[in-house]
Nucleic acid binder design. Structure first.
Lengths: 195, 195
DNA sequence: GTCTATACCGAGATAGAC
DNA sequence: GTCTATCTCGGTATAGAC
């Protein structure tokens, strides 16, 4: 629990392993090897495997929430359509970093399957943060008349769009993903505007 | 590899375990216990853990494709809107069986992370089957004038809707899910009809 | 076909020298 | 802080009696 630099090195090495193979699927031997030290040396910096993992989760999630805040602030003056589209794209861009994205995907889609609930709370918090941001944008959009449909409908449809595009982020190549997202978005916005 | 009845019993016991905890997360001891026999007895029916798992995957996937065919056939004479909505709902209903749904979810969302590619091929095949069905419906819908927007747009948006709703199937309670899906669908269909 | 006993391995974690 | 050596546990899989 000392030497900050080494802790960071270990977490950085552990991230892609946990993201790709999950908690149980990743061994301390693999992590140590990736760092370039021996397995028992890890215990000079972390109390247990779970300790390592949980610390990493916390960092990843607080980073994500910071990113979210910063982006929303930056897009504050755009039109409603642009704000919503940017939120969708920014989210994808951030999570397109494979390690981060896979980690989020894994622990948002398979909650309650793990030992400790503290694992999931981190991601639920991040999800809440995103939803709150969305609600703000939609409310303002309705107020100024950019959105005609009922607020609840917009929220539900948008979240579905976001979840779906998040999944597809990993199926398809980057160019194919962009094309698909553009198409899905245009249908969505078409449906939002009302006639 | 004999006594068909016992093989089925074992697979039936293994399904919820693999679905909830994954391949590595499930032990043969757990499976044996759930069946009511001892661990080594499993080897009278399967060559290995992988053998058991793969056989189960194959069965699950062929069942799913049969279900898909049957449903599409049944809805053949409905209007385009109803066909698309039913496909969405039927898919959800089928996968709402938690064991099946979780298994699909796990192995469709985390492909290429496993030992053997044969695992994933099963699910990719199932996914293809669904896409082909969708394309047929949309093509016919365009032909008879129920759909105005470009075919590709409809496909992309629909798949995004389906993926998103599939994800949400596990987040929310049944009633909340229904409500959300209804909202997302109405925005989607709104966007499809054109103005 | 099912059992007990066991081989073998790799996991997480600890002790203690340096 | 890092290492070697070691402990304990639970995993897959096999041998061989019944």
């Amino acid at each position: 629990m000392s030497s900050t630099s080494m802790v960071e090195k270990i977490e950085k090495a552990a991230l892609p392993l946990f993201a790709r193979k999950g908690f149980e699927g990743t061994s301390l031997t693999q992590i140590a090897k990736s760092v370039g030290i021996k397995k028992p040396s890890l215990y000079a910096h972390f109390d247990s495997k779970e300790d390592l993992f949980l610390g990493m989760l916390q960092k990843v999630n607080s980073d994500y929430r910071d990113f979210l805040k910063e982006r929303v602030q930056k897009n504050r003056n755009m039109k409603t359509e642009q704000q919503l589209y940017c939120l969708l794209k920014d989210n994808a861009t951030y999570l397109k970093n494979e390690d981060l994205g896979l980690l989020f995907k894994r622990f948002m889609l398979f909650p309650s399957l793990k030992v400790n609930d503290t694992y999931n709370e981190q991601f639920i918090e991040s999800e809440k943060a995103l939803t709150e941001v969305l609600i703000e944008i939609v409310k303002e959009g309705k107020r100024i008349g950019d959105i005609q449909v009922k607020e609840e409908q917009v929220i539900d449809a948008y979240l579905c769009l976001l979840d779906g595009s998040f999944e597809q982020l990993f199926y398809y190549s980057e160019v194919e993903y962009e094309e698909r997202l553009k198409n899905a978005w245009s249908i969505f916005w078409n449906g939002i505007k009302g006639c």
